[in-house]
């Protein structure tokens, strides 16, 4: 029952977001600020994770490939496809759900409990739209870029890990990367990323916006935002994969 209540209220919340902006120029400035904080602010952690996971995937695939009939460059094919299809869009978005989602939820939660959101409403401003829409637009624009960076660094990490540990030569790795490459996989990854970016920001913002109580509640809200947006990402991941790849 509670779940249906939340889904209904979330739908109404999202509808409220898309109203005509009061002052488009103010929204634009906000979008740029948010793109910086969501995207550029996450590049550090995303880079570190991508390089290391890329290296680990390569070494592990080589370790598991003991069948002499499968050529060694298949390791690079596996690395490439796991990074492009699942790791960079999904795992990185789960990381961002933790980082970006909790900060959005606690920012809005604090604004709610200190009546800053009421202060906006009093002025006749659609607070949901003013506070949340720029974050969503920024995320949808910048997170795909972060994902692309992650794909590149993940594969680079795979190359470094594979060649430096000696499980695959540089020549074989590059050959594998180019072997039966499906460009649609990148498109699919970006479709997933855009969907996840919307989910992370809107679900976290929803939880932050409807915080009630005090500072204690703000902490709980941001935890809840991370849990819910991660769950939503996983469900969407499954649905989109079903839809496009099966």
């Amino acid at each position: 029952m509670k779940l249906f209540y939340h889904i209904g209220r979330y739908a109404l919340f999202v509808r409220r977001l898309f109203s005509r902006p009061e002052k488009p120029s103010l929204y634009r400035a906000e979008v740029l600020r948010e793109m910086n904080s969501i995207g550029i602010g996450s590049l550090g952690i995303v880079s570190i994770i991508s390089v290391f996971i890329g290296a680990v995937i390569t070494i592990q695939s080589a370790y598991n490939l003991t069948n002499p009939f499968i050529p060694i460059y298949a390791v690079a094919v596996i690395t490439r496809d796991s990074i492009i299809l699942e790791f960079s869009p999904t795992i990185i978005c789960l990381v961002l759900a933790g980082k970006v989602g909790s900060s959005i939820a606690s920012e809005l939660g604090t604004m709610k409990v200190t009546e800053q959101i009421d202060a906006l409403e009093i002025m006749g401003i659609n607070s949901a739209s003013y506070l949340v829409l720029p974050k969503i637009i920024a995320a949808v624009l910048i997170i795909p870029f972060v994902t692309m960076v992650s794909m590149f660094l993940g594969i680079l990490g795979g190359w470094i890990g594979g060649t430096s540990s000696g499980v695959i030569t540089s020549h074989d790795f590059v050959r594998g990367l180019l072997d039966s490459f499906v460009p649609f996989n990148i498109t699919f990854a970006l479709i997933k990323t855009i969907t996840f970016a919307f989910a992370i920001t809107s679900v976290s913002a929803y939880h932050g916006y409807y915080t009630s109580g005090g500072a204690l509640e703000v902490g709980k809200t941001s935890t809840r935002a991370v849990v819910y947006s991660s769950t939503v990402i996983l469900i969407l991941d499954y649905l989109l994969t079903q839809l496009f790849l099966s």
């Binding site: 604090t110 604004m111 200190t114 009546e115 800053q116 009421d118 202060a119 409403e121 009093i122 002025m123």
Partner: peptide, 15 residues
Amino acid sequence: RKEIGMVFQGGALFD
């Protein structure tokens, strides 16, 4: 709403 000014009990300044 645009003709209303309100001072909240806690100030509600944008921090």
